[in-house]
């Protein structure tokens, strides 16, 4: 199986401090839908930043699409939805403006969006059900709708790897379920590799193929039904 992500014996510490990650081995195949979970402060986001090449491991190696993560040549195929994704600064950014920004890496860096890019942007907006709100400022939408807009931004890049860091922060339970169903659709229909990082993964538990629990290292890596009972999130029902 071709790999989207591979970590080999990765350890990491910030600026000579105590290790945040130690001896991490992780392989995610193309087309997998994986939840990376664990307690706050357990190193999930750090692991993600190492995977994406935003941090260099203290030891070990990180690869993206079988290339060193920091020098990966297929970065335009990655879409990253950061923790607490911003809704712009002072200006009232619209849904369409946010989603159009996602098309930049795949299209020309300078000048106007091409007609074909605008079609892709409109399709991404429609895909997440925000066509009627495309011209609305993001800050006038609910948390769940804002997250859908950011998902659409990620989709506009036509990614092979979609990485979401705590995407349900500040989103109500119903919107969490709805978001999880949307991700499952994208995974099923488009075959996108998805890394879903969250301290609460109950919403996606019934859709993911693997759950990876991180607490300084990987303490569990397997199918959701193999999880020890205490890790299941009782706030969500499971199939």
């Amino acid at each position: 199986m071709s790999l989207a992500v591979e970590l080999r014996d990765v350890s990491f510490a910030y600026h000579g401090g105590p290790p945040v990650l130690e001896g991490v081995d992780l392989a995610v195949g193309l087309g997998e839908f994986v939840a990376i979970a664990g307690p706050n402060g357990g190193g999930k986001t750090t692991l993600l930043r190492v995977v994406l090449g935003l941090e260099q491991p203290t030891s070990g190696s990180a690869s993206l699409f079988c290339e060193p993560a920091a020098r990966c040549s297929r970065r335009s195929a990655i879409a990253y939805l950061a923790q607490r994704a911003q809704a712009g600064g002072e200006a009232p950014v619209t849904v369409r403006e946010v989603v159009s920004a996602g098309r930049l890496a795949a299209g020309p860096l300078f000048g106007q969006l091409r007609r074909s890019d605008r079609v892709i942007v409109d399709e991404a907006i429609a895909r997440v059900g925000l066509t009627a709100s495309a011209a609305r400022p993001l800050r006038t939408l609910s948390g769940g709708m804002q997250q859908r807009a950011f998902i659409a931004k990620a989709l506009a890049a036509k990614p092979e790897l979609l990485v979401l860091d705590e995407p349900t922060t500040g989103v109500d339970a119903a919107s969490q379920e709805s978001l999880a169903e949307l991700l499952a659709e994208l995974h099923g229909e488009l075959g996108v590799t998805i890394l879903y990082v969250s301290h609460e993964f109950g919403a996606v538990e019934k859709f993911v193929q693997r759950v990876v629990l991180v607490r300084g290292g990987i303490v569990f890596d397997g199918a959701p039904h193999e999880l020890p009972g205490l890790w299941h999130d009782p706030s969500h029902s499971h199939a």
């Binding site: 970065r75 335009s76 950061a82 403006e97 946010v98 300078f110 890049a157």
Partner: peptide
């Protein structure tokens, strides 16, 4: 467009190269 993209989310832009 490039400046707006970086303004909206600098880290996501960096990830995308």
């Amino acid at each position: 467009r490039a400046l707006v993209s970086v303004t909206l989310d600098e880290e996501a832009a960096r990830v995308q190269g």
